[in-house]
Design a binder for these strands. Structure first.
Length: 385
RNA sequence: GGGUCGAUUGCAGAGCGGUCAAAUGCUCGAGACUGUAAAUCUCGCGGUUUUAUACCUUCGUAGGUUCGAAUCCUACUCGGCCCA
């Protein structure tokens, strides 16, 4: 499925490409989260400027709002949001389960399906693996994800085990429904969306292994890393990520869902993970935190492997909080090295001002800055070592 | 000129004898954010230190009553409104 073009001799980093119906994507790559079919505060037509590989939308959010009838009438989510590059839809598992794990009132998990309450209007909905897949076909995306049971990492072993069992069982139903939909919709082989299974198991390595083995039997295009990639204290689960990457067949795509900080991405790429998505660049941008590359990615960062996250982050980038008083009079460019004219021409003092007066242009500029940083980070990783 | 109401910590604005360094909101200062219930949330915001049911300074100014005053009284200063 993944065509490997280059491998590192020092690490597990692999550089390659994958084919989707909307085009070829160079790996490893990062997808910003456009959860509700919009890159928050930015818009989707920045793709030309930003050189995005792909983006992530969410089954759960779009099903609730604006609803699938509308998306179908719009001609699919790509058309609706005016984005012609590949899209991946997340299954909604993470959202529904995090909703329920945060408040039991918000839903209930059954073996066959999951029920949840819409936080928007309080209405009740059911989600089955089949329904999740059908919705994703209706979205018309390039890559889709099986509905999984996503537990918090600190769950008991017993709970993690049952979530693995449920995830595997649901993955089987997803695959079956996927094949049914392919047939029903008469989708040709080179037009079919890629399907990902999600490996759960929390921090229990043997459960990760069990989950991976069962999923591999079902044969997916790629496999994702389920659950949060960090523990409660925010420590990156390096051992678990490393172990899980090894479980996935070499010709399959490895998708580290929700990863992450730049240093987490570098480390995961060096473990052989191919795909990433995260809210960090856009969310932190909206909150005024800007990523700034040290030495503007002049050298390959994939060399940095066995050193700690802290060291990696210090050697790649620093962040600034544009809200801080020190920027009030800083008339230097937001980012002198940016490809985007507005990031070169607007000053930090002006961006500081925009945040102070809460004008959305501030969020937009900061998010653009961070996305450009992430995209350049991935381009740099793809240089190899 | 007469009457009347008011003056509170950057702003607005509670408080009307002790539990008040003084609610709340904003501003301000800082922090968090990892398959987005996040343009959100957290903390700080008179000073000092031994960080405490501590001390000092503060509720227009100056006095007074009281064990005790931002809160009551008197005068003054300034401001709003009403009447001349």
């Amino acid at each position: 499925m993944i065509k490997i073009k280059k491998k590192s001799d020092k690490t597990k980093l692999r550089i390659g490409e994958i084919k989707t119906k909307r085009g070829v994507i160079q790996t490893p790559f990062f997808m910003p989260d456009a959860t509700r079919a919009v890159l928050k505060g930015i818009g989707n037509n920045e793709s030309g400027k930003l050189n995005l590989s792909a983006m992530v939308v969410n089954t759960y959010h779009l099903y609730l709002q604006p609803g699938m009838d509308l998306i179908k009438k719009a001609g699919g989510v790509n058309k609706f949001m005016n984005f012609d590059k590949p899209l991946l839809s997340d299954s909604g598992g993470f959202q529904v389960f995090s909703l329920i794990h945060r408040s039991k009132k918000m839903g209930k998990i059954y073996d066959k399906h999951v029920e949840f309450k819409s936080p928007i209007d309080g209405s009740w909905h059911g989600l089955t693996p089949e329904k999740s897949i059908q919705i994703q076909f209706d979205l018309g995306v390039d890559m889709m994800v099986c509905l999984d049971d996503c537990p918090p990492n600190e769950f008991s072993r017993e709970n993690l085990e049952s979530s693995v069992n449920r995830t595997v069982q649901w993955a089987g139903r997803c695959k079956k429904e996927y094949l049914t939909q392919i047939k029903k919709r008469k989708i040709k082989e080179d037009e079919r969306p890629l399907l990902f299974g999600v490996i759960q198991g929390g921090v229990e390595l043997d459960l990760r292994e069990k989950c991976a083995k069962e999923l591999i039997k079902l044969d997916f295009d790629g496999y994702g890393f389920g659950a949060r990639p960090v523990d409660k204290e925010g420590n990156f689960l390096e051992e678990v990520l490393q172990f899980t990457a090894e479980l996935i067949p070499k010709d399959k795509l490895r998708f580290a869902l929700g990863v992450g900080t730049p240093e987490d991405i570098v480390r995961c790429a060096n473990m052989g993970w191919d795909m990433f998505d995260c809210v960090i660049p856009t969310r932190e941008g909206r909150h005024g935190r800007l990523f700034e590359a040290i030495s503007n990615f002049q050298f390959p960062i994939s060399k940095q492997t066995s050193i700690s996250n802290d060291q990696i982050s210090k050697s790649i980038y620093k962040t600034i909080n544009i809200n801080n008083a020190g920027f009030a009079m800083d008339f230097s460019a937001i980012n002198l090295n940016s490809e985007l004219v507005e990031l070169r021409d607007y000053s930090r003092a002006y961006l500081h001002h925009l945040f102070k007066i809460k004008d959305s242009l501030g969020a937009r500029l900061a998010s653009l800055n961070n996305l450009e940083f992430y995209i350049k980070l991935m381009e740099n990783i793809r240089l190899g070592d």
